[in-house]
Design a protein around this nucleic acid. Structure first.
Lengths: 245, 245
DNA sequence: TCAAAAGTGTTATACGTACACCCATGA
DNA sequence: TCATGGGTGTACGTATAACACTTTTGA
């Protein structure tokens, strides 16, 4: 027996992935396609976030985790609930109405939006049953519902958050170069950073640990690899109340 | 005709007020009291946040604004949606079940939590029909539902937010002293701040404007009054991407 | 004149910012 | 040997942190 869905409540997941090769911060989206049975006219052809109803006996966090697992097979990724979206007209665009008309879906549905951080290459998009596809966060396709807005707000939250907490490492492989970290910050924030200053800053952190390893398989001078120690970070961490207004 | 309530969806409002006299950051709470008709035994005796169902045709933000106005008469206060709370067991404490048994209320209700910033003295608690009362945020009474947790998370969000944005002035009168601002930061953050350093820092901001006025009616040396200019702040503001991990 | 709170200055240190060239490597 | 990206050092200015006494005022 399947659990009961709460018909007016869903979670939507903004899945951020970073591709160290293309240096691109990506969002994972699902294809939405529908054509008329009779005229073959294309009725819906765009992308949406992955999401689903919350079940009656399930926490919001668990619903988001379940949805991510269903799409990617992944569990234990960094997850943050960042905003609820529930305007009465958020599903009332014409193609959205066509899309949901045959589904058990309340027109006034509130969605609790989460974002997840992972590595683009951890998801097998080739064999994905939802035809999930990565899009650079600054080159999004046409999006259904209010998902454009949801992604923008997730990205804004991520921008703020990555300045204050070491969540950047959730998007990187365990072993990374200093330039990987810089490239990732530049992707997220949309800015350029001075390499010398950034490098010095990062290397001085005790929780950025140089490994006895260098890159392999690169066609140029291989770079020094580092890892991030969450343990050392936690031990060293003390909240500073710097008023910055 | 009254609009239809969405029975499994509510907003709850954490109303923060600052009392410059007692130098106390307060939360506005509503009395909950019920005794048995037969035995006169006290069944429920505690406090809760102000909140209400969202109406079918209403945005979440408007629902929160409506609830604040209903309780305080105030509109146009600083407002932030900071988290949704929707665990299946969040209303299942015994006294909560007693309290809601005669109400049109779904046991699995999701609440969208907001906080508001205002001045304690702007609310007339003497004649308040809900018996609203201010409590210092560090001396809260017994609370119903999951409202203790909601207040704590609101307070955490406020702590972070007041370091990065000039929302502190939403809690102060239009004319304030430098020490008022310091006291308020100390109340919110629960820390002590060096007066000389704080004073210099604030006075150097161009949007903190000294007035040709001093305090009146104080029994000691009257302090210089200042105001905050949101216009100048906005003009001067440029986002700095200081990585602070 | 006294109690209370307002207001004031200096120094050392850390951090951010600006800036240009050499080096190591694999192809 | 060359093209590519990795890696390095200095100087300056600004902001923070630590620290204690004098001044002004109303009562």
């Amino acid at each position: 027996m399947t659990p009961n869905k709460i018909l007016n409540l869903s979670v939507d997941c903004v899945v951020f992935g970073y591709d160290t090769n293309t240096k691109s911060l990506n969002v994972l989206l699902i294809k939405r396609y529908l054509e008329s049975d009779t005229t073959k006219e294309v009725l819906v052809d765009d992308y949406v976030l992955t999401g689903y109803h919350v079940f009656e006996d399930e926490t919001l966090d668990n619903a988001a985790t379940r949805v991510l697992k269903e799409l990617t097979g992944l569990t234990n990724q960094y997850k943050k609930q960042f905003k609820a979206f529930g305007n009465p007209d958020r599903l009332s665009d014409e193609k959205d109405l066509i899309w949901i008309q045959n589904q058990e879906f309340n027109l006034r549905t509130i969605t609790i939006a989460y974002y997840f951080l992972l590595k683009t290459e951890d998801v097998d998009v080739q064999n994905n049953k939802y035809k999930a596809k990565w899009f650079p966060v600054r080159e999004l396709p046409e999006l259904g519902f209010d998902h454009q807005q949801i992604i923008e707000e997730a990205h804004d939250d991520l921008k703020t958050k990555c300045l204050a907490e070491p969540i950047i490492f959730e998007l990187l492989p365990d072993k990374f170069t200093i330039n990987d970290v810089q490239d990732l910050y530049e992707s997220i924030l949309g800015i350029e950073i001075d390499n010398r200053n950034f490098r010095r800053k990062l290397i001085n952190k005790k929780y950025i640990i140089p490994l006895d390893e260098k890159q392999v398989g690169v066609s140029k001078k291989p770079a020094q690899l580092y890892m991030f120690s969450k343990d050392i970070y936690k031990k060293m961490y003390h909240k500073n109340y710097l008023i910055n207004i």
